[in-house]
Amino acid sequence: MALALFDLDHTLINGDSDLAWGEFMVEQGIADASFLDAHEAYFDQYVQGTLDIDEFLNFALEPLGKHPRQALDNWHQRFMQQKIEPMFQPKAEELLNYHRQRGDVLVIITATNAFVTTPIAQRLNVDQLIATTPEEVNNEYTGKPFGIPCFQAGKVKRLHAWLEQTHHSLAGSFFYSDSHNDLPLLESVENPVVVDPDQQLNQIAEQRGWPVISLR
């Protein structure tokens, strides 16, 4: 039994759930168009590898602090139907089932915050989720991040904290990702697998002989 770790956006799903949440909020009138413009600019920085994760999280999580949890959860149900369901990929679910049949422990590990991603992980029947954590007080979001962002080297730190809590190990481990931002974690597992990669990660995979697959 090994760990099978999966990035979410552009890996298990064909799209970016964080950016899609921004689009949804604008379409629903929860945020104005300037919010999406700024979100897209941050996404471009992510692609280029220049994203200031703390600055981005303070921006992206701020709307969660402006609305009651019940309203957010209701909006998220519509968001799943309208934005996320079209992003699911049959080959991704086949890959998850392959690791289930092996008896592996499935973990989604993502920079996108847990408010957005928890229902997605549940829909994919993956019980273990390691994600950037929005701060909560009395079961309401404050609009601020909490703890170490699950991004770049932070993914490795968050994973090792989880390993200490659960007593799992990286022996025989797999990690599937599309992004060069995940290079620190790809280098930490025994079986890195590159999925529909960005140009930079594709070049690295070719240099290192890592397998490259497509789930699209």
Rank of each mutant, 00 (worst) to 15 (best):
H167C: 13
K157P: 02
I213H: 05
A60Q: 14
F79S: 05
D7L: 02
I108H: 04
A92D: 03
P68V: 06
A121F: 12
D196Q: 14
W162N: 02
S169Y: 13
E206W: 09
Y176D: 03
R102P: 00
H168I: 11
I130N: 03
V105G: 00
R158T: 05
S214Y: 09
L129P: 01
R123I: 08
A111H: 13
V47K: 05
F43Y: 12
L185Q: 10
D54E: 06
M1K: 05
V126K: 09
L124Q: 08
D104P: 03
F79C: 08
G29P: 11
A114I: 07
L186C: 06
I213Q: 06
R78D: 14
T50G: 02
P68H: 04
H160R: 13
L61Y: 06
F56P: 02
P149M: 04
V189N: 01
V212W: 10
A153C: 11
H180V: 09
D104K: 03
T142D: 05
R123E: 13
Q128I: 12
A31G: 12
E23A: 14
L106R: 03
S17W: 10
A205S: 12
S177R: 01
V105E: 11
L183Q: 11
L5G: 00
N139I: 00
R216F: 15
K91R: 14
S214H: 13
N138G: 04
V195R: 10
N125H: 15
G147F: 03
E23T: 15
H160G: 01
P86W: 07
N139D: 15
Q122L: 14
F115D: 04
T110K: 13
A171D: 15
D54K: 00
I108Y: 06
F174E: 00
G29W: 11
S177V: 00
P149L: 08
F43W: 12
I13T: 08
Q89W: 02
N191Y: 06
L96D: 02
F115E: 07
L57D: 02
Q122T: 15
R102A: 04
S17D: 12
Q165D: 13
V189W: 04
S173L: 12
E187R: 14
Q101P: 10
Q199P: 13
G143P: 12
M25A: 08
H168E: 15
L185K: 12
D178M: 10
A131P: 05
E40P: 00
F56E: 01
Q45D: 09
M1P: 07
D37G: 07
Q200H: 09
R102H: 00
S169E: 15
E55N: 00
R158S: 06
Q48H: 00
F43P: 06
V137D: 04
E206P: 05
K91C: 01
M1W: 03
I148T: 14
P86Y: 09
D54Y: 01
T118W: 13
A92H: 04
L12I: 07
E62Y: 15
